[in-house]
Amino acid sequence: MRIGTLKESYVADAALFDSRTQHVWLAIAAAALLLFPFMANDYWLYMACLVAINIASSAGLNILTGYTGLVSLGQAAFMGLGAYTVAILQLRWGTPLALNLLAAGVVAMLGGLIVGVPSLRVKGLYLAIVTIAATFIAHFLFANFDFTGGTSGLSMRPARVFGTDLDTSFRLYWLIVPVTVLMLLGAANLFRTRIGRAFIAIRDRDISAEVLGIALLKYKLLSFGLSSFYAGVAGGLFAYFFRVITPESFPLSMSIFFLAAIIVGGMGSTLGSILGAAFMTMVPELLKLVFDLLPGGADLTVFLAPVRLVIFGALIIVFLVFEPLGLAEMWRRTRRFFHLWPFKN
């Protein structure tokens, strides 16, 4: 908590961004996001779009896992649902982009609700395993239906907005980043409402929450639905971004990636989703840079993929054991340090 900010009303206290410093920072961040595409080259734009898509999906998973305490290993499958929805709508009916993205979210949400139904009977880890089952069932459906293009998947035309084809990373940036920012604002605001607070109550102790009058099934399903809605929209963006989707585009390891992202970033924190997804997306690229700098780097590249896997796993373990609140907490600590300096925090 920041000191030196006096609140005079509950509304002010509950505000999303509560201090002037924060407003300044937000303005800087917004300016940076606006200027970035004009300064960066194609590679960095590509990475920025990828990071934004991953942030959107991680934010969704964070609602379910970080805030409601239900582990899901099905995030990739829900993204797949969204991606296929977008592709099929565009290829069959040529419907506009905004509608497609919305439909992607809704279809994924329905999928999420179906998978969430067993939460009526089973809890916690059993549920995580149902989501693994969902991943494989979704893969089977994608691979064996005609209208999903079988194992070779679907190829799309670029999205067309106001007569422009969104076919370069530069143009896609203006679609993907604003949508992601909107979704993040939505997620952050969610936890100022009754629904969001109910989620947190369920996470902290579901039986107590029920005693408090929170309908468990309803809210758990809602959490599942919201989380998969996010995944679906992210999947839709994924489809517009890569324009080729196959059943193999959404493997179980991708779901694990998102779980790792929120663990590393910080569960139960929107900032955590951002930091985690950005960090984990950049890890392979950073590793490449490190390997290039090492002496004899060329011979070491053979180890790049396994090292990446080891680091992925190790990050999950290390953060869970030593810093369960993730990068977001480290960030907060650093901020506090500067804030209170020279006094001890």
Partner: peptide, 16 residues
């Protein structure tokens, strides 16, 4: 550039 046989990494390599 190494891709680890992953499509998104491979596209990133292409862009780079």
């Amino acid at each position: 550039e190494d891709t680890a046989y992953k499509v998104d990494v491979s596209v990133a390599a292409f862009k780079k």
